[in-house]
Design a protein around this nucleic acid. Structure first.
Lengths: 198, 198
DNA sequence: AAACTGACCAAAAAACGAAAAAGGTCAAAA
DNA sequence: TTTTGACCTTTTTCGTTTTTTGGTCAGTTT
Protein backbone atom coordinates (compact mmCIF):
# COMPACT_ATOMS: atom_id res chain seq x y z
CA UNK A 1 0.00 0.00 0.00
CA UNK A 2 2.65 2.44 1.05
CA UNK A 3 4.91 1.31 -1.78
CA UNK A 4 2.09 1.68 -4.23
CA UNK A 5 1.51 5.28 -3.26
CA UNK A 6 5.17 6.11 -3.57
CA UNK A 7 5.29 4.71 -7.06
CA UNK A 8 2.21 6.68 -7.98
CA UNK A 9 3.79 9.94 -6.98
CA UNK A 10 6.98 9.06 -8.75
CA UNK A 11 5.05 8.24 -11.92
CA UNK A 12 3.13 11.46 -11.58
CA UNK A 13 6.36 13.40 -11.36
CA UNK A 14 7.92 11.64 -14.32
CA UNK A 15 4.79 12.04 -16.41
CA UNK A 16 4.54 15.73 -15.68
CA UNK A 17 8.24 16.25 -16.19
CA UNK A 18 7.99 14.46 -19.51
CA UNK A 19 5.36 16.90 -20.75
CA UNK A 20 7.24 19.95 -19.59
CA UNK A 21 10.62 18.78 -20.85
CA UNK A 22 9.12 17.98 -24.22
CA UNK A 23 7.56 21.43 -24.39
CA UNK A 24 10.40 23.57 -23.11
CA UNK A 25 13.50 21.37 -23.17
CA UNK A 26 15.80 20.48 -20.33
CA UNK A 27 17.22 23.90 -19.60
CA UNK A 28 14.03 25.90 -19.88
CA UNK A 29 12.04 23.60 -17.63
CA UNK A 30 12.40 24.46 -13.96
CA UNK A 31 11.99 22.20 -10.99
CA UNK A 32 9.52 24.72 -9.61
CA UNK A 33 7.29 24.39 -12.66
CA UNK A 34 7.28 20.63 -12.34
CA UNK A 35 6.45 20.83 -8.65
CA UNK A 36 3.72 23.38 -9.20
CA UNK A 37 2.18 21.25 -11.94
CA UNK A 38 1.55 18.50 -9.42
CA UNK A 39 0.59 20.94 -6.68
CA UNK A 40 3.46 20.03 -4.44
CA UNK A 41 6.39 21.89 -2.95
CA UNK A 42 9.64 21.82 -4.86
CA UNK A 43 11.40 19.90 -2.12
CA UNK A 44 9.36 16.79 -2.76
CA UNK A 45 11.06 16.30 -6.10
CA UNK A 46 14.31 15.84 -4.24
CA UNK A 47 12.74 13.20 -2.10
CA UNK A 48 12.24 11.04 -5.18
CA UNK A 49 15.18 12.15 -7.32
CA UNK A 50 18.69 13.22 -6.55
CA UNK A 51 18.62 16.17 -8.89
CA UNK A 52 17.23 17.60 -12.10
CA UNK A 53 19.57 15.63 -14.30
CA UNK A 54 18.53 12.34 -12.76
CA UNK A 55 14.89 13.20 -13.31
CA UNK A 56 15.59 13.97 -16.93
CA UNK A 57 17.48 10.73 -17.36
CA UNK A 58 14.52 8.88 -15.87
CA UNK A 59 12.17 10.50 -18.38
CA UNK A 60 14.48 9.74 -21.24
CA UNK A 61 15.03 6.22 -20.04
CA UNK A 62 11.33 5.46 -19.92
CA UNK A 63 10.70 6.94 -23.33
CA UNK A 64 13.51 5.05 -24.96
CA UNK A 65 12.37 1.97 -23.08
CA UNK A 66 8.98 2.21 -24.73
CA UNK A 67 10.64 2.60 -28.11
CA UNK A 68 12.71 -0.49 -27.46
CA UNK A 69 9.58 -2.41 -26.45
CA UNK A 70 7.85 -1.53 -29.70
CA UNK A 71 10.87 -2.46 -31.74
CA UNK A 72 11.28 -5.76 -29.95
CA UNK A 73 7.79 -6.69 -31.06
CA UNK A 74 8.99 -6.48 -34.63
CA UNK A 75 12.10 -8.52 -33.96
CA UNK A 76 10.06 -11.20 -32.22
CA UNK A 77 7.34 -11.40 -34.83
CA UNK A 78 7.73 -14.91 -36.21
CA UNK A 79 5.57 -14.12 -39.20
CA UNK A 80 8.07 -11.66 -40.65
CA UNK A 81 11.04 -12.57 -42.79
CA UNK A 82 14.43 -11.17 -41.78
CA UNK A 83 14.31 -8.67 -44.59
CA UNK A 84 10.86 -7.48 -43.60
CA UNK A 85 11.94 -7.24 -40.00
CA UNK A 86 14.84 -5.02 -40.95
CA UNK A 87 12.64 -2.87 -43.11
CA UNK A 88 9.95 -2.45 -40.48
CA UNK A 89 12.54 -1.97 -37.77
CA UNK A 90 14.24 0.92 -39.54
CA UNK A 91 11.00 2.65 -40.42
CA UNK A 92 9.39 2.13 -37.03
CA UNK A 93 12.48 3.28 -35.19
CA UNK A 94 12.66 6.68 -36.82
CA UNK A 95 8.92 7.10 -36.64
CA UNK A 96 8.89 6.41 -32.91
CA UNK A 97 11.91 8.59 -32.23
CA UNK A 98 10.13 11.55 -33.79
CA UNK A 99 7.79 11.42 -30.81
CA UNK A 100 10.62 11.45 -28.28
CA UNK A 101 11.64 15.11 -28.14
CA UNK A 102 14.25 14.45 -25.51
CA UNK A 103 16.09 12.28 -28.00
CA UNK A 104 16.15 15.09 -30.55
CA UNK A 105 17.35 17.43 -27.84
CA UNK A 106 20.22 15.13 -27.02
CA UNK A 107 21.23 14.81 -30.64
CA UNK A 108 21.23 18.57 -31.00
CA UNK A 109 23.19 19.16 -27.85
CA UNK A 110 25.56 16.42 -28.78
CA UNK A 111 26.55 18.39 -31.86
CA UNK A 112 26.98 21.64 -30.01
CA UNK A 113 27.95 21.00 -26.43
CA UNK A 114 27.28 17.65 -24.86
CA UNK A 115 24.94 16.74 -22.06
CA UNK A 116 27.33 14.24 -20.65
CA UNK A 117 24.85 13.06 -18.04
CA UNK A 118 22.78 11.29 -20.69
CA UNK A 119 25.74 9.32 -21.94
CA UNK A 120 24.89 6.15 -20.12
CA UNK A 121 21.32 5.88 -21.32
CA UNK A 122 22.07 6.81 -24.91
CA UNK A 123 24.95 4.37 -24.94
CA UNK A 124 22.57 1.66 -23.85
CA UNK A 125 20.14 2.62 -26.57
CA UNK A 126 22.94 2.51 -29.13
CA UNK A 127 23.87 -0.94 -27.96
CA UNK A 128 20.27 -2.04 -28.33
CA UNK A 129 20.33 -0.80 -31.91
CA UNK A 130 23.54 -2.64 -32.71
CA UNK A 131 22.33 -5.84 -31.09
CA UNK A 132 19.05 -5.64 -32.94
CA UNK A 133 20.76 -5.16 -36.27
CA UNK A 134 23.11 -8.00 -35.49
CA UNK A 135 20.27 -10.37 -34.66
CA UNK A 136 18.33 -9.55 -37.82
CA UNK A 137 21.36 -9.81 -40.04
CA UNK A 138 22.25 -13.11 -38.46
CA UNK A 139 18.80 -14.42 -39.11
CA UNK A 140 18.97 -13.21 -42.68
CA UNK A 141 22.29 -14.83 -43.30
CA UNK A 142 21.24 -18.13 -41.79
CA UNK A 143 18.25 -18.51 -44.04
CA UNK A 144 20.17 -17.21 -47.05
CA UNK A 145 18.17 -14.05 -47.70
CA UNK A 146 21.18 -11.89 -46.93
CA UNK A 147 24.91 -12.20 -47.50
CA UNK A 148 27.86 -10.34 -46.03
CA UNK A 149 31.59 -10.26 -46.33
CA UNK A 150 31.95 -9.25 -42.72
CA UNK A 151 28.82 -8.98 -40.66
CA UNK A 152 30.35 -6.97 -37.83
CA UNK A 153 31.48 -4.30 -40.21
CA UNK A 154 28.11 -4.26 -41.91
CA UNK A 155 26.44 -3.74 -38.55
CA UNK A 156 28.79 -0.87 -37.78
CA UNK A 157 28.10 0.72 -41.14
CA UNK A 158 24.37 0.31 -40.87
CA UNK A 159 24.59 1.77 -37.40
CA UNK A 160 26.52 4.74 -38.71
CA UNK A 161 24.07 5.38 -41.54
CA UNK A 162 21.05 5.17 -39.26
CA UNK A 163 22.56 7.45 -36.65
CA UNK A 164 23.63 9.95 -39.28
CA UNK A 165 20.17 9.89 -40.76
CA UNK A 166 18.72 10.60 -37.33
CA UNK A 167 20.45 13.92 -37.37
CA UNK A 168 19.19 14.88 -40.80
CA UNK A 169 15.70 13.62 -40.24
CA UNK A 170 15.05 14.62 -36.67
CA UNK A 171 16.76 18.01 -36.66
CA UNK A 172 15.69 19.32 -40.02
CA UNK A 173 12.02 19.99 -39.84
CA UNK A 174 11.10 19.04 -43.35
CA UNK A 175 7.97 17.16 -42.44
CA UNK A 176 6.74 16.96 -46.00
CA UNK A 177 9.56 14.91 -47.38
CA UNK A 178 10.14 13.07 -44.12
CA UNK A 179 8.17 9.94 -44.84
CA UNK A 180 9.32 9.69 -48.41
CA UNK A 181 12.93 10.04 -47.36
CA UNK A 182 12.63 7.34 -44.74
CA UNK A 183 10.96 4.94 -47.13
CA UNK A 184 13.46 5.51 -49.89
CA UNK A 185 16.40 5.22 -47.60
CA UNK A 186 15.11 2.02 -46.11
CA UNK A 187 14.55 0.47 -49.51
CA UNK A 188 18.02 1.57 -50.48
CA UNK A 189 19.57 -0.17 -47.51
CA UNK A 190 17.46 -3.30 -47.80
CA UNK A 191 18.21 -3.54 -51.47
CA UNK A 192 21.91 -3.19 -50.85
CA UNK A 193 21.94 -5.87 -48.23
CA UNK A 194 19.75 -8.49 -49.79
CA UNK A 195 21.12 -11.36 -51.77
CA UNK A 196 20.22 -10.79 -55.34
CA UNK A 197 19.10 -13.50 -57.64
CA UNK A 198 19.19 -12.19 -61.14
CA UNK B 1 48.51 46.19 -66.18
CA UNK B 2 45.86 48.00 -64.20
CA UNK B 3 43.51 45.05 -64.43
CA UNK B 4 46.26 42.72 -63.29
CA UNK B 5 46.92 44.77 -60.19
CA UNK B 6 43.24 44.88 -59.30
CA UNK B 7 42.99 41.13 -59.48
CA UNK B 8 46.06 40.80 -57.32
CA UNK B 9 44.55 42.87 -54.56
CA UNK B 10 41.29 41.01 -54.79
CA UNK B 11 43.11 37.71 -54.51
CA UNK B 12 45.06 39.03 -51.58
CA UNK B 13 41.87 40.00 -49.83
CA UNK B 14 40.19 36.68 -50.50
CA UNK B 15 43.26 34.74 -49.42
CA UNK B 16 43.57 36.67 -46.20
CA UNK B 17 39.87 36.46 -45.53
CA UNK B 18 40.01 32.73 -46.10
CA UNK B 19 42.63 32.31 -43.39
CA UNK B 20 40.81 34.47 -40.90
CA UNK B 21 37.38 33.00 -41.59
CA UNK B 22 38.78 29.52 -41.20
CA UNK B 23 40.37 30.46 -37.90
CA UNK B 24 37.58 32.47 -36.30
CA UNK B 25 34.47 31.76 -38.35
CA UNK B 26 32.24 34.22 -40.17
CA UNK B 27 30.87 36.08 -37.17
CA UNK B 28 34.07 36.40 -35.20
CA UNK B 29 36.10 37.68 -38.11
CA UNK B 30 35.85 41.43 -38.55
CA UNK B 31 36.32 43.46 -41.67
CA UNK B 32 38.85 45.52 -39.77
CA UNK B 33 41.00 42.49 -39.08
CA UNK B 34 40.97 41.53 -42.70
CA UNK B 35 41.93 45.04 -43.77
CA UNK B 36 44.68 45.29 -41.18
CA UNK B 37 46.11 41.97 -42.27
CA UNK B 38 46.79 43.40 -45.73
CA UNK B 39 47.84 46.77 -44.33
CA UNK B 40 45.03 48.66 -45.94
CA UNK B 41 42.16 50.76 -44.71
CA UNK B 42 38.86 49.02 -44.13
CA UNK B 43 37.18 51.02 -46.86
CA UNK B 44 39.18 49.32 -49.54
CA UNK B 45 37.36 46.06 -48.89
CA UNK B 46 34.17 47.75 -49.97
CA UNK B 47 35.79 48.85 -53.16
CA UNK B 48 36.16 45.21 -54.15
CA UNK B 49 33.17 43.66 -52.39
CA UNK B 50 29.67 44.84 -51.65
CA UNK B 51 29.69 43.61 -48.07
CA UNK B 52 31.01 41.03 -45.65
CA UNK B 53 28.57 38.36 -46.76
CA UNK B 54 29.63 38.69 -50.36
CA UNK B 55 33.27 38.35 -49.38
CA UNK B 56 32.46 35.21 -47.43
CA UNK B 57 30.54 33.78 -50.34
CA UNK B 58 33.51 34.48 -52.56
CA UNK B 59 35.82 32.59 -50.22
CA UNK B 60 33.41 29.69 -49.96
CA UNK B 61 32.84 29.68 -53.67
CA UNK B 62 36.53 29.43 -54.46
CA UNK B 63 37.10 26.69 -51.92
CA UNK B 64 34.21 24.61 -53.15
CA UNK B 65 35.34 25.33 -56.69
CA UNK B 66 38.69 23.76 -55.94
CA UNK B 67 36.96 20.75 -54.43
CA UNK B 68 34.86 20.40 -57.55
CA UNK B 69 37.96 20.61 -59.69
CA UNK B 70 39.65 17.79 -57.81
CA UNK B 71 36.56 15.65 -57.98
CA UNK B 72 36.12 16.26 -61.68
CA UNK B 73 39.58 14.80 -62.23
CA UNK B 74 38.31 11.53 -60.83
CA UNK B 75 35.18 11.56 -62.93
CA UNK B 76 37.20 12.26 -66.07
CA UNK B 77 39.86 9.66 -65.41
CA UNK B 78 39.37 7.21 -68.25
CA UNK B 79 41.49 4.58 -66.53
CA UNK B 80 39.01 4.12 -63.70
CA UNK B 81 35.96 1.86 -63.80
CA UNK B 82 32.63 3.37 -62.79
CA UNK B 83 32.77 1.54 -59.48
CA UNK B 84 36.26 2.80 -58.74
CA UNK B 85 35.23 6.30 -59.70
CA UNK B 86 32.37 6.20 -57.27
CA UNK B 87 34.57 4.85 -54.54
CA UNK B 88 37.32 7.42 -55.05
CA UNK B 89 34.79 10.17 -55.49
CA UNK B 90 33.11 9.52 -52.16
CA UNK B 91 36.36 9.19 -50.27
CA UNK B 92 38.03 12.17 -51.91
CA UNK B 93 35.00 14.37 -51.41
CA UNK B 94 34.84 13.98 -47.65
CA UNK B 95 38.59 14.19 -47.35
CA UNK B 96 38.68 17.48 -49.25
CA UNK B 97 35.71 18.91 -47.41
CA UNK B 98 37.48 18.40 -44.12
CA UNK B 99 39.88 21.11 -45.24
CA UNK B 100 37.13 23.59 -46.03
CA UNK B 101 36.17 24.97 -42.63
CA UNK B 102 33.60 27.31 -44.11
CA UNK B 103 31.67 24.26 -45.31
CA UNK B 104 31.62 22.81 -41.81
CA UNK B 105 30.52 26.15 -40.47
CA UNK B 106 27.62 26.25 -42.89
CA UNK B 107 26.54 22.75 -41.98
CA UNK B 108 26.61 23.64 -38.32
CA UNK B 109 24.71 26.87 -38.78
CA UNK B 110 22.27 25.13 -41.04
CA UNK B 111 21.27 22.92 -38.15
CA UNK B 112 20.93 25.76 -35.70
CA UNK B 113 20.05 28.96 -37.47
CA UNK B 114 20.67 29.32 -41.17
CA UNK B 115 23.05 31.61 -43.01
CA UNK B 116 20.65 32.15 -45.83
CA UNK B 117 23.17 34.12 -47.85
CA UNK B 118 25.15 30.98 -48.64
CA UNK B 119 22.10 29.21 -50.04
CA UNK B 120 22.95 29.84 -53.65
CA UNK B 121 26.48 28.52 -53.52
CA UNK B 122 25.67 25.47 -51.43
CA UNK B 123 22.75 24.69 -53.69
CA UNK B 124 25.11 24.75 -56.63
CA UNK B 125 27.49 22.45 -54.84
CA UNK B 126 24.66 20.06 -54.06
CA UNK B 127 23.68 20.04 -57.69
CA UNK B 128 27.25 19.23 -58.63
CA UNK B 129 27.14 16.27 -56.27
CA UNK B 130 23.89 14.98 -57.70
CA UNK B 131 25.06 15.40 -61.26
CA UNK B 132 28.31 13.64 -60.50
CA UNK B 133 26.54 10.71 -58.91
CA UNK B 134 24.16 10.54 -61.81
CA UNK B 135 26.96 10.47 -64.35
CA UNK B 136 28.86 7.72 -62.55
CA UNK B 137 25.77 5.62 -62.01
CA UNK B 138 24.84 6.02 -65.64
CA UNK B 139 28.27 4.89 -66.69
CA UNK B 140 28.05 1.92 -64.36
CA UNK B 141 24.67 0.88 -65.62
CA UNK B 142 25.68 1.17 -69.26
CA UNK B 143 28.63 -1.16 -68.90
CA UNK B 144 26.69 -3.50 -66.65
CA UNK B 145 28.74 -3.11 -63.49
CA UNK B 146 25.78 -1.58 -61.66
CA UNK B 147 22.05 -2.14 -61.71
CA UNK B 148 19.15 -0.07 -60.41
CA UNK B 149 15.42 -0.24 -60.20
CA UNK B 150 15.15 3.53 -60.45
CA UNK B 151 18.33 5.47 -60.91
CA UNK B 152 16.88 8.84 -59.96
CA UNK B 153 15.76 7.52 -56.62
CA UNK B 154 19.11 5.86 -56.07
CA UNK B 155 20.84 9.17 -56.72
CA UNK B 156 18.56 10.90 -54.24
CA UNK B 157 19.23 8.25 -51.63
CA UNK B 158 22.95 8.31 -52.15
CA UNK B 159 22.82 12.06 -51.94
CA UNK B 160 20.92 11.86 -48.69
CA UNK B 161 23.33 9.36 -47.17
CA UNK B 162 26.38 11.36 -48.16
CA UNK B 163 24.97 14.62 -46.87
CA UNK B 164 23.89 13.00 -43.63
CA UNK B 165 27.33 11.53 -43.23
CA UNK B 166 28.84 14.95 -43.73
CA UNK B 167 27.19 16.09 -40.56
CA UNK B 168 28.41 13.14 -38.53
CA UNK B 169 31.88 13.16 -39.95
CA UNK B 170 32.62 16.85 -40.20
CA UNK B 171 30.95 18.01 -37.02
CA UNK B 172 31.99 15.29 -34.66
CA UNK B 173 35.69 15.59 -34.12
CA UNK B 174 36.50 11.93 -33.85
CA UNK B 175 39.62 12.06 -35.92
CA UNK B 176 40.76 8.61 -34.94
CA UNK B 177 37.86 6.71 -36.43
CA UNK B 178 37.32 9.18 -39.21
CA UNK B 179 39.23 7.45 -41.95
CA UNK B 180 38.03 4.00 -41.00
CA UNK B 181 34.46 5.18 -40.98
CA UNK B 182 34.76 6.74 -44.40
CA UNK B 183 36.33 3.66 -45.88
CA UNK B 184 33.81 1.29 -44.39
CA UNK B 185 30.89 3.42 -45.38
CA UNK B 186 32.15 3.72 -48.91
CA UNK B 187 32.62 0.01 -49.24
CA UNK B 188 29.15 -0.48 -47.84
CA UNK B 189 27.62 1.77 -50.46
CA UNK B 190 29.66 0.40 -53.32
CA UNK B 191 28.85 -3.12 -52.31
CA UNK B 192 25.16 -2.33 -52.16
CA UNK B 193 25.13 -0.76 -55.56
CA UNK B 194 27.24 -3.16 -57.53
CA UNK B 195 25.82 -5.97 -59.55
CA UNK B 196 26.69 -9.19 -57.80
CA UNK B 197 27.79 -12.27 -59.59
CA UNK B 198 27.76 -15.10 -57.13
C1' DA C 1 40.13 57.67 -63.63
C1' DA C 2 41.29 53.90 -60.40
C1' DA C 3 42.71 52.86 -55.88
C1' DC C 4 42.70 54.10 -51.39
C1' DT C 5 42.04 56.72 -46.89
C1' DG C 6 40.01 57.79 -42.56
C1' DA C 7 36.53 60.27 -40.29
C1' DC C 8 31.89 59.28 -39.65
C1' DC C 9 27.22 56.93 -38.77
C1' DA C 10 23.68 53.67 -37.29
C1' DA C 11 23.24 49.25 -35.64
C1' DA C 12 24.89 45.34 -33.31
C1' DA C 13 27.48 43.25 -29.76
C1' DA C 14 30.12 43.22 -25.27
C1' DA C 15 30.50 44.58 -20.70
C1' DC C 16 28.48 45.36 -16.52
C1' DG C 17 26.02 45.24 -12.33
C1' DA C 18 21.65 44.75 -10.06
C1' DA C 19 17.69 42.01 -9.55
C1' DA C 20 15.29 37.87 -10.20
C1' DA C 21 15.08 33.11 -10.51
C1' DA C 22 17.34 28.84 -10.51
C1' DG C 23 18.87 24.28 -8.33
C1' DG C 24 19.47 22.33 -4.18
C1' DT C 25 19.30 21.66 1.28
C1' DC C 26 17.17 20.83 5.56
C1' DA C 27 14.81 21.28 10.02
C1' DA C 28 10.33 20.95 11.15
C1' DA C 29 5.44 19.79 10.17
C1' DA C 30 1.92 16.66 8.53
C1' DT D 1 7.14 8.30 5.31
C1' DT D 2 6.05 12.18 2.90
C1' DT D 3 5.72 17.01 2.41
C1' DT D 4 6.59 21.75 3.34
C1' DG D 5 8.65 26.30 2.92
C1' DA D 6 12.22 29.15 4.43
C1' DC D 7 16.85 29.46 3.27
C1' DC D 8 21.48 29.29 0.81
C1' DT D 9 24.45 29.70 -3.19
C1' DT D 10 24.94 29.87 -7.88
C1' DT D 11 22.97 31.09 -12.55
C1' DT D 12 20.23 33.50 -15.45
C1' DT D 13 17.94 37.53 -16.79
C1' DC D 14 17.46 42.22 -17.61
C1' DG D 15 18.22 46.88 -18.46
C1' DT D 16 21.78 50.08 -19.25
C1' DT D 17 26.06 51.87 -20.94
C1' DT D 18 30.05 51.39 -23.66
C1' DT D 19 32.49 49.49 -27.31
C1' DT D 20 32.91 47.52 -31.58
C1' DT D 21 31.23 46.43 -36.01
C1' DG D 22 29.63 46.72 -40.77
C1' DG D 23 29.09 50.00 -43.92
C1' DT D 24 29.30 54.95 -46.30
C1' DC D 25 31.46 58.67 -48.47
C1' DA D 26 33.82 63.00 -49.45
C1' DG D 27 38.11 63.69 -50.45
C1' DT D 28 43.23 62.38 -51.17
C1' DT D 29 46.76 59.83 -53.54
C1' DT D 30 48.69 57.57 -57.38
Amino acid sequence: MVKKSQDDIKNLIVGTAKNLFSKFGFQKTTMNEIAQSIHKAKGVLYYYFNNKEDLYVEVLSRELGEVQGELRKILNNAKLSATDKLEHFIKKRIQLLKDVPSYSEIIRNDLIEAYNFTEQITKQFDDFLKNSLMSVLNEGEENGSMTFKDMNITVENLFFVLKSSDISILLKTEYKRFEKTVNSLTDFIICGISSRTM
